[in-house]
Amino acid sequence: MSTPVLAFDETVRQRSSVRAFLPTPLTDAQIQAVLQDAQYSPSNCNTQPWHVHIVSGETKTRLSQLMTDNDLAGKQKPDFTFSYDDFYGDYFDRSQEQARLYYQALGVAREDKNSRRDHYVRNYHFFDAPHAAFLFMPSFGDNIRVASDMGMYGQSFLLSLTARGFAGIPQTLLGFHADLVREALGVPEEYRLLFGISFGYADTSKVAANVRMPRIPVESSVVMHD
């Protein structure tokens, strides 16, 4: 079983959302090591609400086609709402800047809607990653506390990938076909799909694996009190 090779500060700073992967699969032992790390994530009252389904091989290929077809048919049905219209102020500006920087790095013009659509659909092909994790959760109250637990689990999963020399990307879009994914994977109705994480080895020969987004200064997010 592999062991982390990066210090914590290196791991946090090297982690990025990779959008190009090599087809080389991780071994079962490597995936289990990442899952064991993520299992130590904190959660409210130690509820440990994460229910994770890992897809690879034929299951991943079949699910990819199902989600692509569902999207083209306009049948998105997420368990949780998402709309850019809900963003405002600096939050909206950052979301737009993310898209601008990404497509600029790829050489895709703003008016080139066909190319942008092609890159959008690549989400459903997991950016060619050999594996994807679908993160399901039970529903408690308004789900805010549960979702925060899931976010901490997702971050632990992603940092473990980075520390071990792998790569990943959290994808909100993979949660947009909740009923379809539940049915395909045999997940009970009471579990809600929050998001997915595609993962494997980064294909660093591709621009999409090397795009990094800027971070705002700490003082823009944190207020210190003496």
Rank of each mutant, 00 (worst) to 15 (best):
residue 139 S to I: 06
residue 36 Q to K: 06
residue 99 A to N: 08
residue 203 D to F: 01
residue 112 D to K: 05
residue 42 P to W: 04
residue 85 D to H: 11
residue 118 D to Q: 13
residue 146 V to P: 02
residue 52 V to P: 00
residue 218 V to Y: 07
residue 6 L to N: 06
residue 167 A to D: 02
residue 29 A to C: 03
residue 110 R to P: 02
residue 117 R to Q: 11
residue 149 D to N: 15
residue 36 Q to G: 00
residue 14 Q to K: 10
residue 78 P to W: 05
residue 51 H to K: 08
residue 85 D to R: 12
residue 173 L to E: 10
residue 110 R to A: 15
residue 134 F to W: 05
residue 57 G to K: 07
residue 6 L to W: 00
residue 189 E to N: 09
residue 224 M to Y: 13
residue 64 S to P: 09
residue 212 R to D: 01
residue 187 V to M: 07
residue 45 C to D: 09
residue 19 R to V: 01
residue 173 L to G: 04
residue 42 P to M: 10
residue 69 D to N: 14
residue 197 I to L: 00
residue 56 S to N: 14
residue 106 L to F: 03
residue 50 W to M: 04
residue 35 L to N: 03
residue 215 R to F: 01
residue 65 Q to M: 11
residue 70 N to I: 05
residue 102 Y to Q: 13
residue 136 F to I: 01
residue 213 M to T: 13
residue 107 G to W: 11
residue 89 G to Y: 02
residue 101 L to A: 10
residue 151 G to D: 01
residue 224 M to G: 09
residue 26 L to S: 00
residue 25 P to I: 05
residue 186 G to D: 07
residue 99 A to Y: 02
residue 40 Y to F: 15
residue 208 A to S: 10
residue 207 V to K: 15
residue 92 F to R: 15
residue 216 I to S: 12
residue 8 F to S: 13
residue 181 V to M: 02
residue 161 L to P: 00
residue 170 P to L: 06
residue 196 G to E: 01
residue 208 A to M: 06
residue 185 L to G: 04
residue 60 K to G: 05
residue 221 S to Y: 02
residue 200 G to E: 04
residue 123 N to H: 14
residue 60 K to N: 06
residue 69 D to R: 11
residue 72 L to Q: 08
residue 118 D to K: 12
residue 92 F to Y: 13
residue 123 N to C: 11
residue 103 Y to T: 04
residue 188 P to Y: 08
residue 81 T to A: 15
residue 25 P to R: 01
residue 189 E to G: 04
residue 136 F to W: 01
residue 93 D to S: 15
residue 212 R to Q: 07
residue 175 G to I: 06
residue 221 S to K: 05
residue 215 R to D: 02
residue 83 S to I: 03
residue 118 D to E: 14
residue 176 F to R: 02
residue 144 I to W: 07
residue 189 E to C: 04
residue 96 Q to G: 08
residue 105 A to I: 08
residue 33 A to S: 02
residue 68 T to M: 14
residue 100 R to P: 11
residue 134 F to H: 08
residue 127 F to Y: 12
residue 113 K to D: 13
residue 76 Q to C: 07
residue 58 E to P: 07
residue 138 P to V: 06
residue 176 F to D: 06
residue 89 G to L: 10
residue 176 F to M: 07
residue 207 V to I: 15
residue 31 I to R: 02
residue 198 S to R: 01
residue 3 T to I: 14
residue 148 S to F: 09
residue 175 G to F: 03
residue 124 Y to P: 03
residue 167 A to L: 05
residue 53 H to C: 14
residue 3 T to V: 14
residue 156 S to C: 14
residue 135 L to A: 14
residue 196 G to D: 03
residue 115 S to Q: 14
residue 171 Q to I: 02
residue 118 D to N: 11
residue 26 L to D: 00
residue 41 S to Q: 10
